[in-house]
Simulated scan of single mutants.
Amino acid sequence: MDENTKTETMDDFKDELEASFRTIHEGDILTGTVISVSEEEATLDLKYYAPGIIKVSEFSNDPDFSILENIHVGDSLEATVISRDDGEGNIQLSMREANDMLAWDKFKEYLDNETTLQVKVKESVPSGVVAYLDGIRAFIPASQLSLNYVEDTAPYIGKELDVRVITADPSKEKLVLSAKVVAKEKEIEERNHRISMIVPGSIMEGTVETLMPYGAFVNLGDGLSGLVHVSQICERRIGKPSEVLKEGQKVKVKVLNTDNSKISLSMRALEEEMVDTSAEEAESISDYTSNEAASTSLGDLLKNFKLN
């Protein structure tokens, strides 16, 4: 083996050698790789002369946590040193304590970035439910479970929900989540898609649901409503929609546009089209009658004419 090979070999072990001689203190947060897992504990390679041990009770606050299901050989974990010697020469670690310290920084990022996360509801409590996010107990108020009012939260136990962090206060250990925020965004996205499928110029039927001084809102079904501006209600000038419309009235409307995910409607346009159609029909009938009269008149003249 030449000198260069010996140098490269020593360099390869340089970091490991330095790490093995570093000083570890209680309270330090270390990163290690899982090298074995049992029902009672996981063993970590810390790149140190002694391995790290995490007892199953030191993994998570989540009552449904399973060490055999959630921890695997090769996983990289962060854990807090709770003892430099567990009596058997191992460094005793707590992933739960490290998570309690580090998780709040992640929660703040989730809050700032409006990150959508998935949690499983564990229990029903007064005025809401409890779930666990990254091993930390979180509260979801009943008012934040759904778009609709939720009186009985028990049926939510065991359900998986898409949520957002809406409060993350480490000083009070207060973590609050909302499924309603995510559901509202999905509803708006689906509504906008349905609106995009409506073709301007289409004729639709709907029900007047609200009368305002500036116009009438018409329920078109499928969760969609459109506005008939007061100037688009009829040809004649009116002061307010209630002069010619009433709530609950069935109407036909023409779609003017769907700009900015809003549906603009017109009843006046249909009136104008009916007038134009009537005028065209009248003109057509007039032409037909005129020709008919000329033809009949000529027939009458020749009907009794005889040639010898």
Results as ranks from 00 to 15, higher is better:
Ser127Ala: 12
Ser127Gln: 12
Ser127Pro: 00
Gly128Met: 08
Gly128Ser: 10
Gly128Lys: 06
Gly128Tyr: 07
Val129Ala: 03
Val129Gln: 03
Val130His: 08
Val130Pro: 05
Ala131Lys: 05
Ala131Gln: 08
Ala131Cys: 11
Ala131Gly: 06
Tyr132Trp: 06
Leu133Pro: 04
Leu133Arg: 10
Asp134Arg: 06
Asp134Phe: 01
Gly135Ala: 07
Gly135Asn: 07
Gly135Trp: 03
Gly135Ile: 13
Ile136Arg: 12
Ile136Tyr: 00
Ile136Leu: 04
Ile136His: 05
Ile136Gln: 11
Arg137Phe: 00
Ala138Gly: 14
Ala138Val: 15
Phe139Lys: 02
Phe139Glu: 03
Phe139Leu: 03
Ile140Pro: 01
Ile140Ala: 01
Pro141Trp: 10
Pro141Glu: 13
Pro141Gln: 15
Pro141Cys: 14
Ala142Asn: 12
Ala142Leu: 02
Ala142Phe: 00
Ala142Thr: 12
Ala142Trp: 02
Ala142Arg: 08
Ser143Lys: 15
Ser143Glu: 15
Gln144Ala: 13
Gln144Phe: 00
Gln144Tyr: 01
Gln144Gly: 09
Leu145Val: 09
Leu145His: 05
Ser146Ala: 07
Ser146Pro: 02
Leu147Ala: 04
Asn148Gln: 13
Asn148Thr: 07
Asn148Cys: 00
Asn148Ser: 14
Asn148Met: 02
Tyr149Thr: 15
Tyr149Val: 15
Tyr149Gly: 03
Tyr149Gln: 15
Val150Phe: 03
Val150Thr: 15
Glu151Met: 10
Glu151Asp: 14
Glu151Lys: 13
Asp152Tyr: 05
Asp152Arg: 05
Thr153Tyr: 07
Thr153Gln: 13
Thr153Val: 15
Ala154Arg: 14
Ala154Thr: 15
Ala154Trp: 06
Pro155Gln: 11
Pro155Gly: 11
Pro155Asp: 05
Tyr156Asp: 07
Tyr156Gly: 06
Tyr156Glu: 06
Tyr156His: 12
Ile157Met: 00
Ile157Glu: 04
Gly158Glu: 12
Gly158Phe: 05
Gly158Trp: 10
Lys159Trp: 04
Lys159Thr: 09
Glu160Tyr: 11
Glu160Met: 05
Glu160Ala: 03
Leu161Cys: 09
Leu161Lys: 08
Leu161Ile: 05
Leu161Arg: 12
Leu161Thr: 05
Asp162Pro: 01
Asp162Ala: 09
Asp162His: 12
Val163Ala: 06
Arg164Ala: 03
Arg164Tyr: 07
Val165Arg: 12
Val165Tyr: 04
Val165Leu: 00
Val165Met: 01
Ile166Asn: 06
Thr167Gln: 07
Ala168Asp: 08
Ala168Tyr: 08
Ala168Leu: 05
Ala168Ser: 15
Ala168Gln: 12
Asp169Leu: 02
Asp169Lys: 11
Pro170Arg: 11
Pro170Leu: 09
Ser171Trp: 00
Ser171Phe: 02
Ser171Leu: 00
Ser171Met: 02
Lys172His: 12
Lys172Glu: 14
Glu173Leu: 08
Lys174Gly: 06
Lys174Phe: 08
Lys174Cys: 04
Leu175Ser: 13
Val176Glu: 02
Leu177Phe: 01
Leu177His: 04
Leu177Thr: 11
Leu177Pro: 03
Ser178Trp: 00
Ser178Met: 00
Ser178Gln: 01
Ala179Glu: 05
Ala179Pro: 01
Ala179Tyr: 01
Ala179Asn: 13
Ala179His: 09
Lys180Ala: 09
